[in-house]
Design a protein around this nucleic acid. Sequence first.
DNA 1: CCAACTTCCGGCAACGTTCCCGGTAACGAT
DNA 2: ATCGTTACCGGGAACGTTGCCGGAAGTTGG
Lengths: 337, 337
Amino acid sequence: MDTITIKDIARALNLSTSTVSRALRDSYEINAETKRLVVEYAERLQYRPNPIALSLKENRSRVIGVVVPQIANLFFSQVINGIEAIAYNRGYHVSIFQSHESYERELATVQQVVARKADGLLISLSSNTCNVAYLRQLQEKKLPIVLFDRVSKDLEVPSITADNFAGAYAATEHLIQSGRRRIAHVAIPATISIAQERLAGYRAALEHYGIPYEEKLVRHAGFGPNEVDPIVDDLLRQKPDAFFAASDRLAIGCLTALKKRSILIPKEIALIGFTNITVADLLDPPMTTVEQPALEIGQVAAGRLIDLIEGKPRHLTADSVKIPTRLVIRASTKTGA
Amino acid sequence: MDTITIKDIARALNLSTSTVSRALRDSYEINAETKRLVVEYAERLQYRPNPIALSLKENRSRVIGVVVPQIANLFFSQVINGIEAIAYNRGYHVSIFQSHESYERELATVQQVVARKADGLLISLSSNTCNVAYLRQLQEKKLPIVLFDRVSKDLEVPSITADNFAGAYAATEHLIQSGRRRIAHVAIPATISIAQERLAGYRAALEHYGIPYEEKLVRHAGFGPNEVDPIVDDLLRQKPDAFFAASDRLAIGCLTALKKRSILIPKEIALIGFTNITVADLLDPPMTTVEQPALEIGQVAAGRLIDLIEGKPRHLTADSVKIPTRLVIRASTKTGA
DNA sequence: CCAACTTCCGGCAACGTTCCCGGTAACGAT
DNA sequence: ATCGTTACCGGGAACGTTGCCGGAAGTTGG
């Protein structure tokens, strides 16, 4: 309402809006004295250029839209921190949104981001998103897009993920080397790209060590509040000696379920998670985990996106980057304890 | 770029932009047949009204700006979920931003939110914010503002918080009733409003049970990565038999520090946290906590803000709402274990 | 048959900003 | 005295949309 505009300054100083505009952007065509007058007056009235007007005129906003399935997830919030760090010192603002694991909300949110003329989009797909046609459409309209974590092979855009295959391989290998043979895998929904990669890593490790893959030892769990418990029950019937959970939420769920059944960890069953929670060390027992470099994923993704926005032709093709994970061994996989 | 506008439709259909505009908003002045034509064409070309142009014209955006110190904090992300739930079905979009506990970034972010014509602001102050003059200025310019969690008494706006006093009182009382007398308090930075409330609750409980308040048993910890450890060291010299930590981060820090020193919990020292982490139950030992109704705080705050935006005069004064907390007793405060 | 009214649509301005195109002085050079 | 330069500034359009005003037909009533 009472925000002051370039017109107010022009009127007060008996100048035209063009002159004021140019004075504020320090154009050479403006008299030094006039500039001083304008700048001082603008300063005094706390003039702030209206980014909305700018966006309308220039069809850009210096804003990057970030869409994640859930903010209440340490992995994603850390990725966001990585994104913000890079965006911030390259002169972009970051707007954060959640899709709440819903395709419809993801679509609506992305549309909103686009309508508001975000210069680019960083997105991790919701688990219910099987159709990325709407993203391909946006891509064809030249909107810079970078995927991270939950990516899609149906889209020719840069994709930044942890090295999920290697992480899962390392986790499984660690379990095998510590003497386990019947390794159950609680996987995330199969629709999510990384589920497949992690499953592949798990299978590859089994194969490498000559352990047959058993479908009955693998179950996918969704995002419901009480989904993990029955799945653990099911898996227990297969008499596993280890659990490999494909996310932090699932690892916590497994831990809860196993404790509830008074199963000793790691004596009876070993447990390993794929996670980012910092408290893994403080759990009972301290949980072995595959840690994902969340911050770095965010940084790389933001960097790539801004390169794309600014037309830096450094990476021509739709290159996907895999960032190494780290296996942190703790008590939950100790041998013969 | 090639986003289609009302002009494109007008040109293609040999109509004026005004007619198209009115047809799309289903005005009574437009012939049914014309409407059909316009709507169908718009549908086919996937016309989306440009919110930027609307914002410029109407000086509003149907967007609520949310600023929190940190997203990677389960309390805040849950509050945000509460906010989104309400905002979403009252027709507002939510833009989320972080201040990273920095006054400067908070200020810059809020300015940006305001410049982008957000209809209202929901904010939890950074720990380095001692000066809320900039918010008062915005308030005087009629920007609807609602504070939550980290509030300020220097601002006459609705403030939604957990009942920190009662929560701290309950925590302290529980420790006293379980036989502890020398209760150390690891507090959050004194600049934060809720630090004082929690401290007051702690003191009130002590007083009520006739236990003298000792300054040496209270220490404030900041947000540095290794701040808690030396503070725990300091406090241990006072031979406490219990720790009351004023936030989840600090509770985890205390737990880590105590374990590192092989101090038995709760046998030697009891521990209670003020938190929202769901894994408190899985820690070693399971940690007694005061739980904050994060989701509800978000819901109430968003509701109040939207009421303010829409000029609902229901709550006239700058009313502050306190939402009850819940004491969840677990092993970390067990008696004589 | 004319006035009054209804129905339907176009023109124009405005929101805040920038940019292109002008234009007017003053001044030195020819 | 005239021309070309330089230095400085204003006018107007445009970005996409809505709302006000005005106006041309067609319709109704007397």
